[in-house]
Simulated assay, not measured.
Amino acid sequence: MTTSAPETKIVNEWRIACDGGGALGHPRVWLQIAKEDGWVECPYCDCKFVHSEAAAE
């Protein structure tokens, strides 16, 4: 059995919330994208949030 890669989302905000989406999500967490990195991963669902400025590079 193989597992699918975590989702990657391009966002326009530096501070975002993740709740895993759907009925079987996880508790809502607020994540801060560091401008040096340009991305952050959710500690629950491993979804990667990439800021649009970093994605353009």
Rank of each mutant, 00 (worst) to 15 (best):
19 D>P: 01
39 W>G: 00
5 A>V: 05
54 A>W: 06
32 Q>Y: 02
27 P>R: 02
13 E>D: 15
8 T>P: 01
42 C>F: 06
48 K>W: 01
44 Y>R: 07
43 P>E: 04
40 V>M: 02
23 A>N: 07
43 P>N: 10
41 E>M: 03
5 A>R: 12
55 A>H: 11
3 T>S: 15
10 I>M: 09
38 G>L: 11
31 L>K: 06
31 L>C: 03
16 I>N: 12
33 I>K: 00
25 G>W: 00
5 A>H: 09
31 L>M: 11
29 V>K: 07
8 T>I: 14
47 C>P: 01
53 E>F: 04
23 A>R: 07
14 W>D: 10
14 W>I: 06
2 T>Y: 09
1 M>P: 02
20 G>D: 08
15 R>N: 06
24 L>K: 02
7 E>Y: 04
51 H>C: 04
45 C>P: 10
43 P>S: 09
52 S>A: 08
39 W>F: 15
7 E>N: 08
21 G>W: 00
33 I>H: 00
45 C>H: 04
29 V>T: 13
22 G>M: 05
7 E>L: 15
5 A>G: 00
46 D>I: 00
52 S>T: 12
42 C>N: 06
47 C>I: 11
19 D>R: 08
55 A>K: 11
24 L>T: 14
44 Y>W: 14
9 K>Y: 09
32 Q>W: 01
19 D>W: 08
37 D>K: 12
50 V>L: 07
45 C>F: 10
55 A>M: 08
10 I>D: 01
15 R>S: 12
54 A>S: 13
19 D>A: 01
52 S>V: 08
9 K>P: 00
44 Y>N: 12
6 P>M: 05
43 P>Q: 01
57 E>H: 08
36 E>H: 11
41 E>R: 15
20 G>W: 01
52 S>H: 12
48 K>P: 00
29 V>Q: 09
53 E>Y: 02
46 D>R: 15
4 S>M: 07
10 I>L: 11
44 Y>D: 09
45 C>D: 13
26 H>M: 07
2 T>M: 08
29 V>A: 06
56 A>L: 09
51 H>W: 12
44 Y>C: 07
46 D>P: 00
57 E>L: 11
3 T>P: 05
42 C>T: 13
48 K>F: 00
22 G>K: 01
33 I>M: 09
31 L>S: 03
38 G>A: 04
6 P>G: 10
51 H>N: 10
38 G>E: 09
43 P>C: 06
44 Y>F: 10
46 D>L: 13
26 H>W: 06
14 W>S: 05
11 V>N: 07
13 E>K: 14
19 D>G: 10
42 C>Y: 05
27 P>T: 08
2 T>P: 06
28 R>F: 03
30 W>Y: 13
7 E>G: 00
8 T>R: 03
35 K>R: 15
57 E>G: 15
9 K>L: 14
30 W>T: 10
50 V>T: 11
17 A>S: 15
42 C>V: 12
30 W>M: 10
10 I>Q: 02
55 A>E: 15
21 G>L: 07
26 H>S: 03
8 T>F: 10
4 S>K: 15
34 A>E: 14
48 K>N: 02
1 M>A: 14
48 K>R: 15
31 L>H: 10
8 T>G: 00
31 L>P: 02
42 C>L: 06
49 F>I: 02
45 C>I: 06
23 A>C: 02
15 R>Q: 07
24 L>H: 09
52 S>F: 03
23 A>P: 05
4 S>Q: 15
